[in-house]
Amino acid sequence: MFIYILKRLFFMIISLLVIVTATFGLMRAAPGGPFTGEKELPPAIQANLNAFYGLDQPWYKQYFDYLVSIAQWDFGPSFTYKGQTVNDLINNGFPVSFYLGMEAILVAVAVGILLGTIAALKHNEWQDYGAMIIAVLGISVPSFIIASVFQYFLAMKLGLFPVARWDSFMHSVLPALALATTPMAFIARLTRSSMLEVLSNDYIRTAKSKGLSKNVIILRHTIRNALLPVVSYMGPLISAILTGSFIIEKIFGIPGLGMHFVTSITNRDYTTIMGVTVFFSILLLVSILLVDIAYGLIDPRIQIAGKKGD
């Protein structure tokens, strides 16, 4: 197990290096320097600015400095938010996004598993078709459309929820639902197909012939085993929630990191884009690693490290 984690960490760091290098390369390739504005700057000021941000150094020095600063958890200044660093943006925005994301993950997992289980238990009955229609719709309709529809009908027409902003729990309901729809649909489909597979196993028949009650069979013998594929979907789930948050936060005007990211894209604020991208990548890679480790711990059939050190 320990060797496996070390190995994974090693490859994770290489992947991160690829990302950092790509962002660095792209930042340099981006058209226009950070200080090419409408006003022509006097050459002395230009030189001073370049010196301040280390832009007068040769590229390999800059690259190395960039690596060091990221290793020190410093994502650099923002070019358009004056006086703010990317770290400030992350510190302000991430807690909001985290709260919203967690709520969405909870909804997606709970509702998804419920729908999938119902569909599998009532295989080829109307409940099954109903659940699968919801699932196919959830997969087919892009999240920004779902979000706008929710906003239009539930908030504007019916007035059940606030339309936008971020003040109370009620403000978080619609965005979390919109964010959860697509992953929820995936989880429902996954749960259904793996439940169906598990239900056709011999040990379920054994359990039935032992005279166990239906509830015990479902809870003890079926769902537990059927949920393994769902656990392995947690990695993609986190990345779906994260990228989904860009759009949802913008639509609902939530001051999270996703909205800052979208704003920085619109403003062509290169350093923020790069910094937040690196931050998101670290976040994703670490959470996927954690999910994989958890999966290994849960599933008795997987032995992560062979005794011979894999």
Binding site: F11, I14, L26, T243, I273, T277, L285
Partner: peptide, 22 residues
Amino acid sequence: MRAADILWAVPYLLLVILLMVV
């Protein structure tokens, strides 16, 4: 396959966004 794995770990949409910006 190792090379592919490393590239695979790069978050898809983030990379696409980055490329489209630049």
